[in-house]
Design a protein around this nucleic acid. Structure first.
Lengths: 193, 193
DNA sequence: ATGATAATAGACATTGTGTTTATTATTACA
DNA sequence: TGTAATAATAAACACAATGTCTATTATCAT
């Protein structure tokens, strides 16, 4: 909407800051990372950092926000249930995005990541589920909740593992596995194919 | 093994510190909690805190370690697969433990919690799976990995939700739901009952 | 009752934090 | 291409939490 307006210097600076954050978080949690460390790694002045972010946590939150924005766009781009293949397409696109930004997404989902990020992703998927399943009446509301949490938590865990293997398998294969596990559980792994 | 040796004063102090930590983490992430805050909430001297813990993160880690120890004991107390009802029993016991220590466990699994705690729980369940499924040859190793991650991530998410509803349903009911979802996926929710 | 030890109060140097100032370097664009 | 706008820098600053001491008081185990 209102992008492209940012000064080139700002873009370069922010990029350097973000890359340093990701690099540092590969080795330690955000709690052990100071603003000073980030600035030294990014080779920028500390005043410059404060011109853009309140502190290291605000920076992390901003970065997470961008990822969440991307996922949100994908997740709401199609119907998940009903339309055949809709869910697969969405999963494949999210997986592809994750793989393209592996260094970042991997660290956000890792043990050095932020629980609130994963919590926000849960919330996002939750909204999607509610939007699509609001007519669902055959299951008790609380069971629906559990199902939702189970699904998102499970899929997120698969994606985490997949990123840690450096996307060894094809996105389509992972999405297929996800769907099978969701719909038919472990039983789904033994039938056919 | 070598418990019961701790001075009464130490026990009281540590308990006060732990309770203050849990209370504070109900309202903010550990990154916003200083040693000073914990000491004021617990009404103890800051020097006393440093006599027991290196910093607030070491404290959190110690508390998490106790929970993990409890879960570990339960998880390895019986075979999960094979023996009928074994898995159910383990799940029920873990759920009961979580509910008895709801204030603590809830916060550790919340958005203010620590990703590394959840990561450690994953690792724990992973070891259990490997120990029991080492003979499994009908699925490719990587698929087995994904299945493991999916299962633990999904079950953990259900437990988180359950704790947030203040254990509204019975542990047996939750454990049953967990097993159904794991074995038969969403299909399992509609069949029989 | 007493020797051992935990908790306290207070002081201390250190470090990262945020903020500000003047100065330099880079950018957008007329 | 020249220039006004603005981003980045360097330096200084008060401030707050940190981590480590020491001397003193309170509590415990026996």
């Amino acid at each position: 909407m209102e992008r492209k307006k940012e000064d080139r210097r700002v873009r370069i600076t922010k990029q350097a800051i973000r890359e340093s954050l990701v690099e540092l978080m590969g080795r330690q949690p955000i709690s052990k990372i100071s603003v000073k460390m980030i600035c030294e790694a990014a080779d920028i002045n500390r005043s410059t950092f404060y011109a853009h972010y309140k502190d290291q946590y605000a920076l992390l939150h901003a970065v997470q926000g961008e990822v969440i924005g991307e996922v949100k766009a994908q997740i709401f781009s199609a119907r998940f249930f009903g339309a055949s293949g809709g869910a697969m397409d969405v999963l494949v696109r999210i997986l592809e995005y994750g793989c393209e930004n592996a260094a970042l997404v991997k660290v956000l989902l890792s043990e050095n990541g932020d629980a609130s990020f994963q919590s926000e992703l849960m919330q996002l998927a939750h909204e999607k589920f509610l939007a699509e399943l609001e007519g669902e009446r055959s299951l008790p509301p609380r069971t629906l909740q559990y199902l939702n949490e189970f699904a998102v938590g499970g899929l997120l865990s698969i994606m985490r593992r997949w990123l840690e293997t450096d996307c060894a398998d094809e996105p389509e294969m992972i999405a297929d596995l996800m769907m099978k596990l969701l719909v038919s559980g472990t039983q789904g792994l033994y039938s056919a194919k």
